[in-house]
């Protein structure tokens, strides 16, 4: 039951206010992908132990999605990034 600091609301809030929204930075495969490539995009995930990049949505707050780098063994949150910051390269 960890705390996440929403980068938009600017406060640490209980995990219960948020919803996990899948592995972050998955690239949508193009329309001409082979069945194998499309299946890989649809179903295969890295499933790493340790630091992982995942998406969380502040569903009971501002409804924004952002990226969390979390150690999935210790639940330590290592970094929180907005999509805007990634796109602008900052």
């Amino acid at each position: 039951m960890f705390l996440i600091t929403c980068p938009y609301c600017g406060e640490a809030r209980e995990e219960q206010e948020f919803s996990h929204a899948g592995e972050a930075l998955i690239q949508r495969a193009p329309l001409d992908a082979t069945d194998a490539e499309w299946g890989d995009y649809l179903f295969n995930r890295s499933n790493r132990k340790g630091p992982v990049l995942e998406q969380w949505q502040h569903t009971l707050g501002c409804r924004k999605l952002f990226i969390v780098e979390r150690n999935n063994v210790t639940n330590d949150i290592l970094a929180i990034k907005t999509f805007e910051s990634l796109r602008s390269g900052s």
Partner: peptide
């Protein structure tokens, strides 16, 4: 809708 819009 929000997820596809914000991430994709």
């Amino acid at each position: 809708l929000e997820r596809w819009h914000q991430t994709e």
